[in-house]
Design a protein around this nucleic acid. Sequence first.
RNA 1: GCCGAGAUAGCUCAGUGGUAGAGCGCGGCCCUGAAAAGGCCGGCGUGGGGGGUCCGAUUCCCUCUCUCGGCA
Length: 306
Amino acid sequence: MLKKKIIFLVGPTAIGKSAIAIHLAKKIDAEIISCDSMQVYSLMDIVTSQPSSTQRKQIKHHLLGVVNPIREYNVARYRKEAIAICDKLFLKGKIPLFVGGSGLYYSVIIDGLFPAIGEDKSIRARLDKELSLKGSSCLFQRLSKVDPLSAKKIHPNDSRRIIRALEVYLKTGLPMSSLQKNRIGLGSEYEIKIFALNANRKTIYNKIDQRVDKMFKTGLINEVQGLLRLKLSKTAFCAIGIRELESYFKGEYDLDEARRLIKRNSRHYAKRQLTWFKKDARIHWVNIKDEETPGEIAKRIWKKLF
RNA sequence: GCCGAGAUAGCUCAGUGGUAGAGCGCGGCCCUGAAAAGGCCGGCGUGGGGGGUCCGAUUCCCUCUCUCGGCA
């Protein structure tokens, strides 16, 4: 029996995924499921560069602007919601086209998430306190005793991951490393095609600069000012642009500096995204040329689909 | 034109008679419930050009070029 197809279009920030995705979706009768940890939030259209309303009218988009930014969001929720949408699309006879740049999010769809517990606020608060009192090496030693395999993988300075691994152990009594072996994703059930866009580093960085300038022109400052009046969740607050403008509002530096930092942090982000994608051997790379239009690129991808 | 200061990494600069560092930038990497987050690694260099002293010069001397101050 022929497996059903799921398509992923990933790539670094600002490279032009959204426009290409719409051309592609039209050709194959797909609907788009956003694969972006920040575009799920509402009220953050400009700072997260969500597809425009005209774009969204052309093709149905899912998981865009659906979470209030005062709420936390995470991979587990994303996985659950995205898979539910996927199932619905298959019933309608549509192809799911995942589009976005969050490496962990797409991998969790394809490869699955190990069955574990979510965040436990009280355990974390306790571990956080221990971290600030005794430092990460103390936590790391504890982890080495209860879960040596995880300790081997996690760097002693990476307190975030040490805490998570300890949290899993304290809550389940099992080392996280053994739970992680249990992972089932959609990859076994469906035919998965992953396309990653890439271009010269310089081209990507130019696109980032242009996008950031455009964000400022279209009302970034007002949007972020409004967001800062809310009590943003720790996850929503992480969107590039918020921290940088908050410091500007506090008078720590001028607007040019804020703009420079937003550009720089976006460059670093794009680099990390590419590192993530590069190690995924399943990816079909699509190197885009400077003069190519979104329609032409979509056509190239389409040809590789069958 | 004269006087002074300087010319070292992509940028701003430190330092030394035994071929060089720091911050930022940049490059590479890791990643399972915060992932646009978090963490790790890497100096990426004809030391302005040319001569001299010295076993040895980026460092000392001479000269040229350029830059920045000050005086005209």
